[in-house]
Design a protein around this nucleic acid. Structure first.
Lengths: 355, 355
DNA sequence: ATTCTAGGCCGAATCGATTCGAGTGGGGTG
DNA sequence: CACCCCACTCGAATCGATTCGGCCTAGAAT
């Protein structure tokens, strides 16, 4: 779409054409400095005549030391993040929070592999970064950002003392949900957790796996569940998705002689998958199996009104955005912790034969 | 999180510490040039000792002339775009398409207001841009990008001869859907369209509104519908959302004596809203009212299997991403047009008394 | 032993704009 | 009438890295 032969005009060209110095032309564009209206107009006219498209943002950001871009680090590929309604809500909140900055949002993923020229955490022209998600890889990201001196805010996941963290009462909330199940009379409770490690190991919830956990969210929610059901075990999913929930649900419900009466899933998507598995196996929800979720999103296609722990996702995002603004303003970092609430839907009931 | 007192080390500092020249240090980092292993190691060691975080991406991109960032222009605020499943699918496709570039995705909105320092289309450090959505403001965006010489690809919306466009058979597909309704026996058909202009005027589908259209998608789909039902009129929505569909549906169904037997909505979300309106008013779908959508997404909470025109959203995004790669490689722009298919669900039936 | 070759390394220019201190002209004032 | 001040403009340095041509030296070839 461009004529490669003719290089784009630069500010210097415009200045020459307008008969002023480059510095004056710059002033005319940025608008701030003391420039007479006549001069400014002349510069703008020259720019127009030359087809000048405005100051090059690359040069500008080099000089100014700011790019006007805030990075958002997702732990998975973009596709996966977009499939998770919680992530989208947080993104939305972040957008609101950083609005006063007028900054753009750059989507980044921390896959660990540093591909030479690819734009990554190690090399993205960002002024600040928000780490999203219960990231098992968090340590790595934080180190890279610290070296680069980039202000950072983390959503879910203790990143370090000097990094403000936006979180929720994962343990306490889960405990509340678990207590509700206990009050209903459940004793045979199984868990479906979020991934515990960077490898996203899928499988039984072994002590070894839990001990090696690098994911705070999963760990905290697990603790909350075990506060009420100390012996509870279950399965770890490889991601927060219906698919993974389905898989875990199948495994947990495989043996008709030995089924839990309730399953605590660490996300609504996982819960939806568990319910699907139950339907497959002819296990009635909630009559034969109670299912508890976490997040409070609407799950597409789910016929039930899921009993779940509702977290304020948008508010979390907004808080993260606001924290970014504060950091950039030189104010000290401030962490925040939000509270979740139990929403009782129709996927939980007293266990069979106990009504 | 950073000690403001001590400025970050630069490549020159590292070079000095390693006892080599800046140029050599640069080579050591970028890896490409001829540098002995010993030297490279020394440089890397020095960098480590100094806590150097790697080459500054701002300086690098100024010199290289590329930032490694691809912009995605959404016509609405980010929140709104994320609520539209079609947009998300296209974003996902774009991510796939530009994967070989290793580039980041910068979210931009073209609101028209140019806020001084804000990162916008006029001033974003992007190597290329994808315009998403049936944007009434497209002309403005394109002009800004052309001036800046930034390779551009448009999804839905004729942007100009030299800009590759990724589109679907809007008119033809809608015609097919309309013909299906006609075959069922419908004659009283009303329309609910996407916005026609930048102002997103909501209201009756007047000739004046249509004539002043700046939105190709809405216009094309309208033409397709009128190919079959030349007299069809209806209402224009202010956005593609359930809420807007609801509003339009209420208006179209308000008068019991004068109701259409079928409504052609230009998006699934609008269709879902129309169905909600019908339910509100006690109009049975499809017995008393047939509803046709467009997009082929799953609408959250909708109990029906919507009859709709399924478009390949992800493929469109991927094609756009691939076009970006081609443009950046200097290859000539290539437009592509995908085909939609009619999915017959349970929201369409012969009109009452015609079975 | 001498010349050729090539791998390694360096110096200097460059990318394009911003910024700060210095200069200059015109208008107002004592 | 001379002086001062203000408003505007200019020069030059700077942001930090990349890149290209040239230079040097050690080893190979003759």
């Amino acid at each position: 779409m461009q004529t490669d032969s003719a290089p784009r005009p630069t500010l210097a060209d415009v200045a020459a054409k307008a008969g002023v110095s480059a510095s004056t032309a710059s002033l005319a564009f940025s608008g701030s400095g003391p420039v007479s209206d006549a001069t400014k107009e002349r510069v703008l006219a020259a720019a127009d005549a030359l087809g000048y498209g405005g100051p090059d943002p690359r040069a500008r950001s080099l000089r100014r030391g700011r790019s006007g871009i805030v990075g958002v680090v997702l732990e998975e590929r973009v596709r996966a993040a977009f499939l998770d309604p919680v992530k989208i809500q947080m993104l939305d909140g972040i957008t609101e929070g950083i609005a006063p900055l007028g900054a753009g949002l750059l989507l980044l993923t921390d896959t660990g592999e540093v591909d030479g020229n690819a734009v990554s955490i190690e090399s993205a022209p960002v002024d600040a970064v928000v780490l999203i998600g219960c990231s098992p890889r968090l340590g790595h990201s934080v180190e890279a950002l610290r070296r680069r001196g980039i202000p950072t805010v983390a959503i879910e996941g203790a990143a370090g003392e000097d990094i403000p963290e936006i979180s929720i009462d994962n343990r306490e909330a889960t405990r509340r949900g678990a207590e509700y199940l206990k009050e209903l009379g459940h004793t045979e409770v199984a868990l479906v957790t979020l991934p515990f490690d960077a490898a996203r190991t899928r499988g039984p919830l072994t002590p070894a796996l839990v001990a090696a956990s690098t994911a705070d969210t999963a760990s905290e929610r697990l603790l909350g569940a075990r506060d009420v059901f100390p012996e509870a075990t279950g399965r770890a999913a490889a991601a927060s998705s219906i698919e993974e929930g389905l898989e875990a649900g199948r495994a947990l419900l495989a043996d008709p002689a030995n089924r839990p009466t309730a399953i605590i899933a660490q996300s609504d998507l996982l819960a939806a998958g568990v319910i699907q598995a139950a339907e497959e196996l002819g296990v009635a929800v909630p009559a034969e199996l109670s299912v508890l979720g976490f997040d409070g999103i609407r799950v597409d296609g789910l016929q039930h009104d899921l009993t779940t722990l509702v977290q304020p996702s948008v508010a979390k995002g907004r808080a993260a955005g606001e924290a970014v603004v504060q950091l950039l303003a030189g104010e000290p970092p401030r962490s925040r912790c939000f509270t979740s609430s139990l929403h009782v839907g129709d996927t939980t009931a007293p266990p069979r034969g106990r009504r």
